[in-house]
Design a binder for these strands. Structure first.
Lengths: 204, 204
DNA sequence: ACCCCTATGTTTAGCCT
DNA sequence: CAGGCTAAACATAGGGG
């Protein structure tokens, strides 16, 4: 619009290579997050559909807004963890003392629900329906029947991860020392909702 | 090369469109999972790097093997949840009772560490090192200093997710009824490591 | 199982509406 | 600020080692 006699080439410039580092431009960063986060959800969704894998994930936008996604269906996955059927390990079955258990759980309760997740879920459904095979799936108990509180309970008792050990192991194997970290400052973009008790990392 | 009889074209067939449904061929399914799961990790990794988002995710391979990935750096993220700095929500701050707290935590303790996570982490590091900016990151406490037990504690107190509410909300908004679900039945692929106590769902 | 290869489907950066 | 467009970058199915 403004002009500049640019030879009428209105075609987009197409995808350009972007450096793998934190995006400086705030606006651009937002757009990127917006686009990529949905891509991530889609990928997860596809992985589930294609391979039948179960996926659960949460992520915080640069602004601090939490997102969550989980696959098969809440009841199943949640239960999977609830019942501790995570038995795959035969690694070192060290007995560990419960660490802050209750406290942690109580503190981590509230998580904002994101529209994106819903959108992703919707897409999955549409895909299924498109294939007219939605009827073969049954539910032990439809989520709709759960009360809000029950949902919260489910949520709260969902997955628990780690990666600490991964890094640890990584060291063991590669002999590396610094466990990565990046410009993921608490309020990097402009989030002011987080306090981040850790004074760690510093930035870029 | 060995056989040139084929009109001298031994070029790969290139990517073919694949139906979005559970792959039947077991071998193919495994390969696909193998490829896609790393892609998923990469995407997550990039999202972290580019937008500074924090990502935590776990997923089970069709065989039941658990995978986990988390971003910024364990201490920070773990702390984020540990200290309950998940405060972003201002949604409905319903008070929920602790559900199985200790029990859950104790049961979900052991999780197999996957090479993939390590690999992903390694990649992130390499990227950083490639940019020669690895030295600017400091750690309040290097993971290497943590004992195995401490790692386990960290791990166990890591993230907790959900999506239940997401689905719930989805209903509210779209009026949809069945919360998706796919050929991800507990023993769909051939996992025999899991028992899946399903059906229990936490109805209070 | 993992890596390599290639062709091609898919994602997405930049720009516009 | 969400939606659309384009074209380049990227992920990955299929196949071989």
């Amino acid at each position: 619009m403004s002009s500049s006699s640019q030879a009428s080439s209105r075609k987009g410039k197409g995808r350009q290579k972007v450096a793998m580092e934190k995006i400086g431009n705030e606006k651009n960063l937002q757009v990127t997050f917006s686009k990529r986060h949905s891509g991530l959800l889609k990928k997860a969704s596809e992985l589930c559909t294609l391979t039948g894998a179960e996926v659960g994930m949460i992520f915080f936008s640069p602004s601090g807004k939490p997102f969550a996604f989980g696959h098969p269906d809440v009841n199943t996955v949640a239960d999977r963890f609830l019942t501790g059927n995570t038995r795959v390990l035969n690694h070192s079955e060290k007995v560990v003392q419960v660490y802050r258990s209750e406290k942690i759980i109580q503190q981590n309760l509230e998580l904002t629900i994101n529209e994106d997740v819903i959108e992703a879920e919707k897409r999955r459904q549409e895909e299924l329906e498109e294939k007219k095979k939605g009827s073969q799936y049954s539910f032990p108990r439809p989520i709709e029947e759960l009360s809000y509180e029950e949902l919260v309970q489910l949520r709260e008792s969902y997955a628990k991860f780690i990666q600490d050990v991964a890094v640890e192991t990584e060291k063991h194997k590669s002999g590396l020392v610094s466990p990565h970290l990046h410009g993921t400052k608490p309020d990097s973009g402009g989030g002011k909702d987080f306090s981040f008790a850790a004074g760690a990392s510093s930035s870029k």
